[in-house]
């Protein structure tokens, strides 16, 4: 239950640049995420938030700069990269549950095949995790039979099953019907309370205020502003952030 983390860096992003063709999506990004810390990345779409999030487990390659995780630079490929990814959970906007596997199988695949845990043990732990996110009764169903909120909670359980050192959330509630957003955020707030290190790309200000230690505001590929949630939302320093907040706060 570390509220503030123990101040050792888990992820260090240094001078990172990335281009998609002529589009410079990440411009000299520097960001450090400490153990136990919850960082919310916010900003207009196309600003590079998701790309940054995905670069941390190398689903997206970078053109220059370095990213270190747990003191080591990200491996480029192969088994070492797979091992890194097994330590970094990822929750996607579109859930991406394995469509041909049951809810429980979705949660146990990684532990069994990557961690080499026995099926019995993986299923026992899988059921505990499904219980924790409130969908144990759906364990034998297939993803398409569940609501979006239930699918996303399964995706969180799937990430947790690997006992990751951190979890990346790439707009986890953006594809959900409004009434399902809260159930997913509640699970995420619970994780934050338990001290999970999280990088969350989201527009949910309620979540940012309740769970985040830091808000990183990104626009046009740059980190424009970094602050505590309260200061950022009530007293943004840059015009770009003021402009952005005025647009999302008026709704």
């Amino acid at each position: 239950m570390t509220e503030n983390g123990d101040a050792t860096p888990l992820v260090r992003v240094e001078n990172v640049n990335k281009n998609f063709g002529a589009l410079h999506v990440l411009k000299d990004i520097n960001l450090t995420v400490y153990r136990g810390e919850v960082v919310v990345v916010i900003g207009p779409s196309g600003g590079g938030k998701s790309t940054l999030c995905r670069a941390i487990n190398r689903l997206e390659t970078i053109d220059s700069g370095t990213i270190t995780f747990d003191g080591k630079p990200l491996p480029a490929e192969g088994k070492a990269l797979a091992r890194l990814r097994s330590d970094v959970g990822m929750v996607f906007q579109s859930f991406n549950l394995f469509a041909h596997k049951t809810i429980l199988e979705n949660v146990t695949l990684g532990p069994i095949k990557v961690r080499g845990i026995s099926r019995d043990q993986a299923e026992k732990r899988g059921m505990e995790l499904l219980e924790r996110v409130g969908i144990a009764t759906q364990a034998s169903k297939y993803p398409a039979q569940l609501s979006g909120g239930q699918q996303q909670r399964t995706a969180i359980a799937r990430a947790l099953a690997m006992d990751p050192k951190m979890i990346l959330f790439d707009e986890p509630t953006s594809a959900l019907d409004p009434e399902m957003v809260q159930e997913v955020l509640d699970v995420m707030i619970g994780l934050a309370r338990d001290g999970m290190t999280m990088v969350v790309v989201t527009h949910e200000m309620g979540f940012a205020r309740r769970a985040a230690k830091r808000v990183v505001f990104m626009a046009e590929g740059q980190i424009v502003e970094e602050n505590t949630p309260d200061d950022f939302f009530t007293n943004p320093r840059t015009d770009r952030a003021k402009d952005f907040l005025s647009k999302i706060l008026t709704h």
Partner: peptide, 10 residues
């Protein structure tokens, strides 16, 4: 689907 598979370390 493949991204999620890679993301859990497969």
């Amino acid at each position: 689907q493949a991204e999620a598979a890679r993301a859990i370390g497969l």
